[in-house]
Amino acid sequence: MAEEFILAFDDLQKDDSNNEKLVDFVRNHYKNSLISLEFCSTLQRRLDIANDHDLPPFFHNFFRDDLSRLVSNHSMMLDTLKPMCTGFNKELDSIGLSQKVSAIFFVAAVIICTAASAIATANANPEWAWAAVAGAAPVTSILFGALGKWRHSVLNKSETVVRKHKEITTRMILAADCGIKDLINIHFVASRLEFETKSLSKTVDNGKKVAAVKRSSEELLQKVKNYNGEIKWVKQKVLDIIIKP
């Protein structure tokens, strides 16, 4: 998965319009299989039948396999994204330094040429040397000014591209961090529900335990729905960043 992401991101870096692979990767990576219709409908039925003492038959494998897989995917993306984001920060620092150096150089060049022109004009005489300087300095000044603007434009474009790439990785890093925390919380509630359900089966008439199972079921369903909503939101945000001009 990490290799697939890197290859897709390389395509984007080569050409901003070449984003199909990265778009497909993001859609697949944030495709949420945790909140299946089967799971939601089954868990919802438990809320309507508070004395149902048996967890859904797929419950244990569902959380053991799916939660573990999703946490592993998020962790793998963190390991891939963080070095990339660090690299983009270094690139931005380098571009910022180049912008400052370039600005100083071209401004100084224009000032020198302007001063040379003024001196040459003041000292102009029939001798060809001063006349040549007086004529060439303004042209050179204009040339340096144009080169300075061109260099500034190139650096600005590079900065814009790198900032976009950093924004993508930053957004995905935050999503992975939040996703892992959400999944850990979901696992905690699922484990508690499993324990309460097993305890309930031994004391069928215990109203407090029945209520506890119902509360845990409601909490679990809500946390899973929240996770699903966050993943859906992140997917759209990342896609918007990728495809924006």
Rank of each mutant, 00 (worst) to 15 (best):
N226S: 11
A137H: 03
L34V: 02
P56L: 06
E219K: 04
S117Q: 15
A50H: 13
L92E: 05
H29S: 00
K244N: 10
V210I: 15
H53T: 01
A115T: 13
R171F: 03
E230D: 12
S72F: 11
R69G: 00
V23A: 02
C40E: 11
K149W: 14
A115P: 07
W128I: 05
A190I: 11
T169D: 02
C85Y: 15
N73E: 11
R151D: 06
L43A: 11
E196Y: 14
W130P: 10
I184H: 13
I49G: 00
Q44M: 10
L147M: 11
T170G: 03
D16P: 00
L193I: 04
E196M: 14
K164P: 03
K90C: 04
N156Q: 12
V107Q: 14
F88E: 05
N19Q: 09
I112V: 09
N28A: 15
H60L: 11
F63W: 05
V204I: 08
K223Q: 09
Q236P: 08
P83I: 04
N51I: 01
W150K: 05
F105V: 09
K157C: 03
F62H: 15
D48S: 02
K181E: 04
A8F: 15
L155M: 01
A137G: 08
K90I: 04
K157V: 04
L183K: 01
H187I: 08
G135N: 15
R163L: 05
L193W: 10
V71Q: 12
T114R: 13
T86D: 14
N51V: 07
Q44S: 10
I243F: 08
L183F: 05
V154H: 10
F106D: 00
W233E: 11
D205Q: 15
P245R: 12
A122P: 08
V238C: 07
F25V: 04
D182L: 07
D66C: 12
E194D: 09
R46Q: 07
R69I: 04
M84Y: 14
L47N: 00
L221A: 04
N226I: 01
D177G: 03
E194C: 09
G229C: 01
